[in-house]
């Protein structure tokens, strides 16, 4: 669905390339996550893919055609969820959707139904200037869906949302995937990426440092562990790798000569994999 090869991009006012030759491929029906610290080039890559930046080097193919060959009708095929709220403050939520919907070819989407999906039914006739940050973000999110596009780009779709609404948004994203939509997602949130993405790319400093399914990455770079809490004149905590645990003498020793309080296995997290592959810690913003 999307194929990027040797993408290089430099902002006109910058000395060095912001995107330093990245390549990736997104299949139809896939959720692809772009993860990386602030300033890595996630939004820049997304802006190139949605044709807001055009002076790039390298090849980009979307839906089988060179990205540069598309005119404005490209936007009938893609939906974009922006990182920060952007609505007409003096218009109601419903009017905002109507305004943007009037520019697309597909017109039969039920706008009230869309608002209902993200819990904005009651706020449909309220001006967006009176919305809370979370409400604005939810409106941002559904606006990307109002022309039933084939490919969706979401920049930090759950940032600024409470857990219930964040869960709801994630469910909708999974639902879109079930309908065969292709989804490009950027985030700093490892949990979301782990839950949602079929594949992720770790990007730092304009380069992709690792790529693969969250599961495969964790398997390859992270080690699942066992935490053992035991009593032996005071409480102690020990940590063991699950691999060859049966042959681990220290572990067997503890089992034989101590009172075990608790044992928990701990999966490698995507965070650990990220630190290992990029040598960088993700700055947490939410």
């Amino acid at each position: 669905m999307i194929q990027v090869a040797n993408l290089i991009f430099r902002y006109p006012n910058q000395e060095i390339d912001t995107i330093k030759g990245i390549s990736f491929k997104i299949e139809k029906g896939e959720i692809y996550g772009f993860l990386g610290p602030s300033g890595a080039g996630k939004s820049t890559t997304q802006k190139i893919l949605i044709k807001l930046l055009s002076e790039y080097k390298g090849q980009i193919q979307v839906m089988g055609h060179d990205l540069k060959s598309y005119n404005n009708s490209y936007y009938n095929k893609i939906g974009v969820g922006f990182e920060l709220p952007n609505h007409y403050a003096k218009l109601t939520g419903l009017e905002n959707l109507k305004l943007f919907a009037s520019f697309y070819e597909v017109k039969n989407v039920d706008l009230m139904e869309l608002l209902h999906k993200v819990g904005l039914t009651d706020a449909a006739h309220q001006k967006t200037q009176d919305y809370s940050k979370g409400m604005k973000m939810r409106l941002n999110f559904v606006r990307a869906l109002l022309h039933d596009p084939e490919i969706l780009f979401f920049d930090e779709p759950t940032s600024g949302l409470d857990p219930v609404n964040a869960k709801n948004i994630k469910d909708i994203i999974l639902d879109l995937k079930a309908k065969g939509k292709t989804i490009f997602l950027t985030t700093h949130n490892m949990h979301d990426a782990d839950e949602l993405c079929d594949r992720v790319a770790f990007i730092t400093n304009g380069q992709i440092m690792a790529e693969g399914s969250p599961k495969a990455l964790k398997l390859k770079f992270g080690k699942p562990l066992l935490n053992v809490e035991y009593q032996n004149s005071g409480f102690h905590l020990a940590e063991f790798e699950l691999e060859n645990l049966g042959q681990n003498l220290e572990f067997r020793n503890i089992l034989e000569s101590n009172k075990i309080i608790s044992m928990h296995t701990r999966e490698a997290s995507l965070d650990e994999v990220f630190i290992k592959t990029t040598g960088e810690q993700l700055t947490l913003t939410d």
């Binding site: 807001l52 952007n86 609505h87």
Partner: peptide, 18 residues
């Protein structure tokens, strides 16, 4: 300027409106 403040230009830019 109102629209710039509300950042709606970038949304308009990703619709088919030329």
């Amino acid at each position: 300027l109102f629209e710039k403040d509300a950042h709606t230009h970038e949304v308009i830019a990703v619709t088919p409106l030329p």
